[in-house]
Amino acid sequence: MKTEVSKSVFKAQALEIMRAVEQSGNEVVITSHGKPTLVIKPYQEDAPKDPKELLKDSVISFENPTDSVSDDWEVLQ
């Protein structure tokens, strides 16, 4: 369940709100002039990911792999 509080209420009751989030695990949305701006939620440590898994499907196309990346490069001999 998400709860919404204004910035001014959060400022006055920040410690109480943070303790409630820790205990309940529920998110609190901080609003500014009625529009959501921030979310306070419990921290969850992510499991480390395999670098190959992070890059999987990240290449959209692979055309001419031997072409120069830029015309500005010099070939050193």
Rank of each mutant, 00 (worst) to 15 (best):
P51Y: 07
V29R: 02
L54P: 02
L76E: 10
L38D: 13
S70G: 01
L55R: 12
I40R: 03
L54K: 06
Q13A: 01
L15G: 12
V29S: 04
P65M: 07
S68H: 09
Q44W: 04
E16V: 05
N64E: 10
I40S: 09
P65C: 03
P65R: 09
D67E: 13
S58G: 03
S70M: 04
A20L: 05
L38W: 14
S61I: 11
S68Y: 10
E16P: 00
K41P: 00
A47Y: 08
Q44K: 13
P48C: 04
L15P: 10
D57T: 08
K52P: 00
G25W: 09
N26I: 00
K35A: 09
I30S: 08
N26V: 01
L54W: 01
L76F: 13
I60E: 14
V29W: 06
P48T: 08
D46S: 14
V29H: 06
I30M: 13
D67K: 14
E74W: 04
D72N: 11
G34T: 02
E45H: 13
L38N: 14
W73R: 09
E45C: 00
Q23E: 15
Q23D: 14
A14G: 04
S24W: 09
M18C: 12
I40W: 04
D67I: 05
D72E: 15
V29T: 13
F62W: 13
V59H: 01
M18A: 15
Q44T: 11
V75Y: 01
T66P: 00
E63Y: 03
T37V: 14
S24F: 06
W73I: 08
L15D: 15
K41M: 13
K56F: 01
D46W: 01
L38C: 02
T66W: 05
I17S: 03
M18W: 05
P51A: 06
L38G: 01
S24R: 09
K52S: 05
V69T: 09
P36T: 01
Y43N: 04
K41L: 11
